[in-house]
Amino acid sequence: MDSATLIQTLLNSVVASSIYALVAVGLALAFGVMKMANFAHGEFFMVGAYCVYVLYGLLGLPFPLAVVLAVPIVALLGLLTERFIFRPTRRNVLAGFMATAGLAFVLQVAAGRIWGVGIAKGVPTPYAGTAEIGDANLGWQRLIIIPCAFAMLLALRYFLYRTKFGKALRACAQDPEIAALQGIRINRMTALAMALAGASAGLAGALMAPILPVTPYIGHGVVLIAFIVVIVGGMASIEGAIIAAVLLGFIHTFVTTLADNLIATMVGVVFMAVTLILRPKGIMGRERA
C-alpha cells in the first residue's frame, strides 16, 4: 500500500467510524434504558437520508439546513416509536421485538410508496471539491462528516454526564426502580432516550445522503453493523459502542481496500465472534449505561 492509499484509507476509516458511532450510540442508549433492541433503528438512518433528499435534493434548501432539520424530524420519529411501540410493549420483550421489526418494514414500504423503489435517489453533492492531504485526495463531502459526528457525540456526552436530565437518564438505565424512587419519571426518560437515538441515527443518515444511493433499504446494512458494534462494545455502554465503532470502521475500510466489501463484512463478523469468546459481555462488559 503506497502512502497516498494509506492516508486515504486512514481518513476513510475515520469517516466510517464516525458514522458507525453515530448510529450505534443511539442503539446502545435506547437498549440501556429500555432493555429492548430497536430493530427499526436502521430505518431512522434511512428517514434521515430521505429528509436530506427531499429538503435539499427536491425543495432546494441549503444542505446544512436540510441536515439540521433532519435531526429533530427523526428525533420525533424516535419519540413516537417510544410512545406507541415500546411503552405499550414494555412488559413483553418479544412483542416489542416484533413491533419494531414491523415498523422497519412499514417505514421501508412507506418510503418506497412515496418516493419509488426502483432507482436509487441521487442527491447532488453539495461540496464537490476534494482536499489534498499529503498525496491523497479526499472529498469534502466525506470529510465534513468527521467534525459533525464529533460534535454530536461530544454534545451527547456533555448531556449525559453534566446535566441533571442526562444523569437521570443514566440512573434510569442502571436501576429504573430506584430511579423512580428518586422522583424520576421513567416514561420521560425512555422517551428522551429514543429521541436521542433518533436524532443521532437521523444525523448519520442525513450526512450520508449525498454519498450513498438513497433507497428505502439503506437502513439494512447500517443497522447490521450497528448491532455488531453495540454487541462488541458491551450492549448498553456508550463508551464501548464508540470504541467498537472505531475498531470496526478501521477493519471494514482497510479490508475493503485490500480485498473487497464481502470479505470486509466477514472479517467484521469474525472480529465480533472472537471478541465475544474472549469477553462475553463485550469490550466495556457491563449491562448498564
Binding site: 442502571q174 436501576d175 430506584i178 424512587l181 449505561a289
Partner: peptide, 10 residues
Amino acid sequence: PEGRRVFPYM
C-alpha cells in the same frame, strides 16, 4: 432499599 442499590456506574 434492601441491598442499598446505589447507582453503580455513577
